[in-house]
């Protein structure tokens, strides 16, 4: 971030602050978590009718003050959202209820096609603006699938890894759009595949959506999603 940003951000920051102050309801008045999520069921689930993956382990938001989306440059996001900044062991899948740095992982099924991170944070009475979310899920693939693409949209910038390899990045000023950014062609190995993402929110209604598309651009649905 530069001095020029500092000057420009003053107005935006003031507007964002006004928005936060104007939203002065008590926690109990916000829509409850159950409006958007249910606890992850014991049995594996499948992608929804359009292939969107709705079961995720979500970490409570990490404070990362940013009053605007326009500072989320590629360099900044790659530095701040990386395996090095992951709160835990990047090679492991955490479990529901596990805590790290005072923040808790929640295993949830989204009731919608997208994952409402803003409402997740708000319902838990956690910071909503200027935060980083981490999300993890595990898919079981019946047989190796080549030529597949991960398709993701996020509000705001985000980075995504498959089995530890970076496959997609969404930078700069982002709103969530389905199939916004697609990975290069990749191979889902037979069996367990881990998807991990980090999303940074400025002043927005943070959320994300993710699915896999086959070589013809059609959603892949024959996946078993679990987060154990």
């Amino acid at each position: 971030m530069t001095k020029t940003w500092t000057a420009a951000s003053a107005v935006t920051a003031a507007l964002a602050l006004w928005a936060v102050n104007a939203d002065a309801r008590e926690p109990g008045q916000y829509p409850p978590l159950s409006d958007y999520f249910s606890p992850a069921a014991p049995a594996p689930t499948a992608p929804d009718a359009d292939g969107f993956i709705t079961r995720w382990l979500l970490l409570e938001p990490i404070s990362k003050p940013n009053p605007t989306n326009t500072v989320f440059t590629r360099s900044y996001v790659r530095e701040e959202l990386s395996p090095a900044t992951y709160p835990g062991d990047f090679a492991k899948v955490e479990s529901d209820g596990q805590r790290v740095n005072g923040l808790q992982w929640h295993a949830l099924d989204s009731r919608l096609w997208d994952v409402k991170l803003f409402n997740f944070a708000q319902a838990l009475d956690k910071p909503k603006y200027g935060v980083v979310f981490w999300a993890v899920t595990v898919i079981d693939v019946p047989e190796e699938m080549a030529g597949v693409r991960l398709a993701v949209g996020s509000n705001s910038a985000s980075r995504w890894w498959l089995n530890g390899e970076e496959v997609a990045g969404l930078y700069d000023d982002r709103r969530m759009v389905m199939d916004d950014v697609l990975s290069d062609r990749l191979t889902l190995k037979a069996g367990r595949n881990v998807i991990r993402g980090a999303i940074i929110n400025g002043p927005g209604l943070s959320d994300f959506c993710l699915r896999f598309l086959d070589a013809d651009g059609q959603p892949i649905r024959n996946l078993a999603i679990d987060i154990k």
Binding site: A7, A8, V11, T12, R74, D172
Partner: peptide, 15 residues
């Protein structure tokens, strides 16, 4: 694909 570079601009003065 490059970093977005802001054009120097005094937003407060403009407003």
């Amino acid at each position: 694909q490059t970093d977005f570079v802001r054009i120097p601009f005094d937003a407060r003065a403009a407003w």
